[in-house]
Design a protein around this nucleic acid. Structure first.
Lengths: 244, 244
DNA sequence: TTAATAGTGTCTCTGAGACACTATGTG
DNA sequence: CACATAGTGTCTCAGAGACACTATTAA
């Protein structure tokens, strides 16, 4: 909008052929040594039987953030997650039925809060075919094979992983992927899983302990076959993140 | 979209009350020691007489990037700019007339390529009331006073400045704000103007010379009252940037 | 006692800030 | 020559990698 005012004055929003607006949410978690995403199976064409991101149309009276939160509630009862707008995908032809522009969101959740797999829902490990923050599409593995993904959702997943990797070092996003308390080793493992690369143990410990982000709980691991590590808690804003 | 398929099957896009979709473009430049944005004056309500970002509705058959490029062409004949999607603003009520979701873009342009001021167009200096990448709304000055900005455009400008500051150190975005050739001093001045803070001369020079981004031209400044500096050229991808 | 990982101390390397010093144009 | 800024050389300091060494638990 802006100074198309003369045009806008007589503008009847229903009179034009306009794009539809949707949100798609990339729900990421780290479990069993892999970065995983929540995907649903499409039961109808197009892309029938393919995996797809949970999503839905934006209602006329709700904000984009609210639409994303509504999708999360409806597809698995997820609440109070770290949630952030990712990018808006709007190429004509990304949906063969009609023009749909989709505002993509990323949500981060600790594995124990992920809804149970079953029905049309699955939490599939991602294979990232590029290093660092290079970017590019990302596949999801189902029964060891790449699951066909609907629409441009491989690209959306790729953008989400790229963004998450980029934020990892300078934001507390990583704590949204961990339970309430965790050891430094847990923290490092999650970090490495997201990055898809190993990090230096010593400097990782130092950086995190120096950062002021961590609060020692006084508790220690139990039932481990080695010296038990101290459990820490994220000392910043609790739980979720930028949006709820 | 996704597995709302049962719902979607019988979906008639015209039957629902849906948000309209627009693009707004923040065209930034650095001139006369200030970060400046291209703004137009609204001639009609709402916000009649206020300054606003150039923008327009997204057509049914064009991509979002194409819509942003079209707006740039139409509002000042700007072509081949560094252009990047910024964020999508979609709060209900951001436009008092109707629900409009706007995909904001940032464009960077060297000052000599900025279209002439006049008519409803102005290139106004921005005052950023926060430091670093803290974020928050940003005002534009017109005749020394803050110009009233339409809609949520102060917030969009703020997000644009925040994003640009964040990218400055690790992307070649800054070269889009400079002419074909420039001295290291020019480069540093633009950097400082965008950041709103001074940077260390020595380490700035070293970093840039080490980066491999610069190519010496062999030419030197002329008609300066001091030792003339060498002119450099950006050695990476020429001219524009991520999108054209 | 051994295996295995937690956690500490310290050396080195690299990049940034600080600062002094030289170079080279105009007036 | 004076002035102003370009450009270089070098010292110091802080953070990261490397690595050796100690600590603590279960089996």
């Amino acid at each position: 909008m802006t100074d198309e005012s003369t045009f806008l004055e007589g503008y009847d929003p229903a009179a034009f052929d306009r794009p539809s607006l949707a949100v798609d949410v990339v729900v990421l978690t780290v479990a069993d040594g892999a970065l995983r995403a929540l995907l649903v199976r499409r039961s109808e064409p197009p892309f029938q039987g393919c995996r797809a991101l949970p999503g839905g149309f934006v209602r006329i009276d709700e904000s984009l953030d609210d639409a994303a939160r509504r999708v999360l509630r409806d597809k698995g009862g997820l609440r109070d997650l770290w949630l952030e707008q990712l990018y808006t995908f709007g190429d004509p032809g990304r949906d063969p039925r009609m023009r749909i522009v989709s505002v993509a969101y990323v949500a981060l959740v600790a594995p124990e809060r992920m809804p149970p797999t079953g029905g049309d829902r699955a939490v599939l490990p991602l294979t990232v075919p590029w290093a660092g923050e290079a970017g590019g599409p990302v596949e999801a593995l189902e029964e060891g094979r790449p699951a066909p993904l609907a629409f441009d959702h491989a690209r959306i997943l790729g953008t989400a992983v790229q963004r998450l990797r980029g934020k990892l070092d300078w934001t507390p996003a990583i704590y949204a992927l961990l339970p309430e308390t965790f050891t430094l080793r847990d923290l490092q493992r999650v970090h490495e899983t997201v990055l898809g690369a190993e990090v230096n143990k010593d400097s990782f410990r130092r950086k995190k302990l120096m950062s002021g982000e961590l609060e020692a709980t006084g508790e220690r691991e139990r039932d481990v076959v080695h010296r038990p590590a101290e459990r820490y808690r994220f000392a910043g804003r609790t739980g979720s993140g930028p949006a709820r």
